[in-house]
Design a protein around this nucleic acid. Structure first.
Length: 430
RNA sequence: CGGGGCGUGGCGCAGCCUGGUAGCGCGCUUGUUUUGGGUACAAGAGGCCCCCGGUUCGAAUCCGGGCGCCCCGACCA
C-alpha cells in the first residue's frame, strides 16, 4: 500500500483527550478516531490489526473444533425475558424501541441467542457436543468509558459457547478452550496468564480471566515464574496443560492469597499489572434450563446441556498490546498483528535509484507492506515509521541505493543491517 | 452514580477575570530552500468562538438553561 494514497492520518501532537499510552498512540498512528464517548471508528490501519487478530483467533478456534457463525448485534428483548436477564442486566444494556414499540437491545453478549438457536435445531444427544462462536460488535453502556478502546462501550469480541451432554464433557471443552486461548495469545505475540476469576453477570462457578502484562494494567497481578516455562504450542495434552496452568499460582489483587504467595520461593515471585483480554466460564445448565433447551438422551430422557462461554476482547487486545509494547517513539507491534509487516522508506522520492528499488520491494512484499512514497524529509519518515511501529523498516536512501544496498531496521530491538535488496527482502519475509 | 475540569480554524493552546478589529504554534496550499532523524524563509487558505435564551449600543468574554467530552472514585469484556 502506498502511504501517499492511504488514509493513515498520523498526528504530531497528542489530542488532549487521550491520557494513556495506547489511546494516545492509536490516535497518533492513525488507527482509530473517536466518534462518541467509548465509540470508535477503526481506520484502515487499525482495521488491519483487528483483522489479523481475528484471523489468528479463527485458526485456533477451528483447530480446537469450534464452528464460526455470525449472530446479529440487535436482539429481541423477549429472548432475554426468558432467561430473566432483561431486568437483571441493568443500565449497562442499551435498550432500543423500534417503530412498532417493540423492545430490542444491542447485544452485550449472546448466551440467550445461541441457546435459542440451538434449542430450535438440536434435538438429540447425538448432535452434541458442539462449540460455536462468532466475532461480533458488542455494546455495553459503561458508566464511564475510558482508556480509549480498552474500555469502550462498543467493542469487538469473539464470544464462543460450548454445549455438552454432561459435566465431564463441559469441563473438557473448558480445558480445550483454555489451551486454544493460550495458543492464540502466544501466536499474537504476547504473554497472557490465566487466573481464577469471579463469574459476574454471566453466572456460573468456574471461570478464568486471561491477563496480559502491561505496566498500565488495571489490576495488580501476582504469579509464579513457572508460568513463563509453559509453552502452549508444545502442550502434550489438553488435560496436562490445564493441570499445569491451574496448579501454578496466579491471581489478581482481588483474589491474591498471601498465605499461598508466601510459600513461593522469592526468586520465582512475579508481580506486575495486568489487562484482562479474555475470560472463560463454565456455567452448567443456567441457560439451558431457564430457556428450556433439551436434547433427548440415549435412554429417551430429556437432558439439559451443560454450557460454557468463552470470550476474547478483540478490539481491547489491540489497545492492550500497545500498552504492553511501546516506547517514547511509538508502537512496537508484534510481527503477527502489525498492520503492515514492513514499511519501505524512500528517503529521496524522485531519485531514480531509490524509486526503482522501492518500487521493486513494494511489488515483491505485496499488500502487507506500507510504502512511504510521500514527498517528505527523511526525518519525518523515520519518525512516522517508528510511531506506526512496523516490525521492519526498509530504508532506501541514495547513499546505499547506488550500490544496491538498503538498510533494514528492526523496530523492537533497534538493530540496523546494511544489506543487499535481496537479502533484506529475504529477512523480512522469513 | 458521587466529585472535579474542559468546549475558540484539522491538532495543541492563548484571549474570558476587567465586554469594543479573533490570536499563537503545529498541520494544510503555493514558491524558494533543505535532502539520512519531524529543515528554513516567504506568501496564502481556513472560524455559526458547542447550542438556545437573556443583559447590553455592542457578548468568545457577563447571566440562565441545555448538549458534548475528559479526569478521579465506585462499577465493569
Amino acid at each position: 500500500m502506498r502511504l501517499s494514497q492511504s488514509l493513515i492520518p498520523t498526528l504530531k501532537e497528542t489530542p488532549a483527550d487521550a491520557q494513556i499510552a495506547s489511546h494516545r498512540l492509536m490516535l497518533r498512528a492513525g488507527l482509530v478516531r473517536q466518534m462518541a464517548s467509548g465509540i470508535y471508528a477503526w481506520l484502515p490501519a487499525g482495521l488491519r490489526v483487528l483483522n489479523k487478530i481475528s484471523a489468528i483467533v479463527r485458526e485456533e478456534q477451528a483447530a480446537a473444533g469450534a464452528q464460526e457463525l455470525l449472530m446479529p448485534t440487535i436482539q429481541s428483548a423477549d429472548l432475554w425475558r426468558e432467561s430473566g436477564r432483561y431486568e437483571a442486566y441493568g443500565k449497562e444494556m442499551l435498550r432500543i424501541t423500534d417503530r412498532h414499540e417493540r423492545d430490542l437491545l444491542y447485544g452485550p453478549t449472546n448466551e440467550e441467542m445461541i441457546t435459542a438457536i440451538m434449542r430450535e435445531s438440536v434435538k438429540s444427544y447425538r448432535e452434541l457436543p458442539q462449540n460455536l462462536y462468532h466475532i461480533q460488535w458488542k455494546f455495553r453502556d459503561e458508566v464511564r468509558p475510558r482508556f480509549g478502546v480498552l474500555r469502550g462501550r462498543e467493542f469487538l469480541m469473539k464470544d464462543g459457547y460450548g454445549f455438552d451432554l454432561d459435566y465431564a464433557g463441559a469441563l473438557l471443552t473448558y480445558k480445550k478452550m483454555m489451551l486454544a486461548y493460550m495458543r492464540t495469545f502466544q501466536r499474537i505475540g504476547i504473554t497472557a496468564i490465566p487466573m481464577r476469576a469471579d463469574t459476574g453477570q454471566i453466572g456460573g462457578d468456574l471461570s478464568h480471566e486471561f491477563h496480559i502484562l502491561a505496566p498500565t494494567g488495571e489490576s495488580g497481578v501476582f504469579y509464579d515464574a513457572a508460568f513463563e516455562a509453559g509453552d502452549p504450542s508444545a502442550a502434550a495434552s489438553v488435560e496436562g496443560f490445564y493441570e499445569q496452568m491451574t496448579t501454578i499460582y496466579a491471581a489478581t489483587d482481588e483474589k491474591h492469597d498471601l498465605a499461598v504467595w508466601e510459600k513461593i520461593p522469592a526468586e520465582r515471585k512475579r508481580e506486575g499489572r495486568g489487562i484482562e483480554v479474555g475470560q472463560i466460564f463454565y456455567f452448567g445448565k443456567k441457560y439451558s434450563e431457564s430457556m428450556n433447551f433439551t436434547v433427548t438422551g440415549q435412554d429417551g430422557t430429556k437432558i439439559f446441556p451443560e454450557m460454557g462461554s468463552y470470550g476474547i476482547g478483540v478490539s481491547r487486545l489491540a489497545g492492550a498490546i500497545i500498552e504492553a509494547r511501546h516506547d517514547e517513539a511509538g508502537i512496537i507491534w508484534p510481527d503477527a498483528i502489525a498492520p503492515f509487516r514492513a514499511a519501505i522508506l524512500n528517503l529521496r522520492q524522485g531519485d531514480a535509484a531509490t524509486d526503482k528499488i522501492c518500487g521493486d520491494l513494494h511489488e515483491k512484499l505485496g499488500a502487507d507492506c506500507l510504502y512511504d512514497d510521500r514527498e517528505e524529509r527523511a526525518g519525518a519518515k523515520f519518525a512516522e515509521a517508528d510511531l506506526m511501529g512496523h516490525p521492519w523498516q526498509i530504508i532506501v536512501g541514495p547513499r546505499g541505493a547506488a550500490n544496491g544496498q538498503v538498510e533494514l531496521k528492526r523496530r523492537v530491538t533497534g538493530e540496523r543491517f546494511e544489506l543487499s535488496v535481496a537479502d533484506a527482502l529475504a529477512k523480512v519475509l522469513s
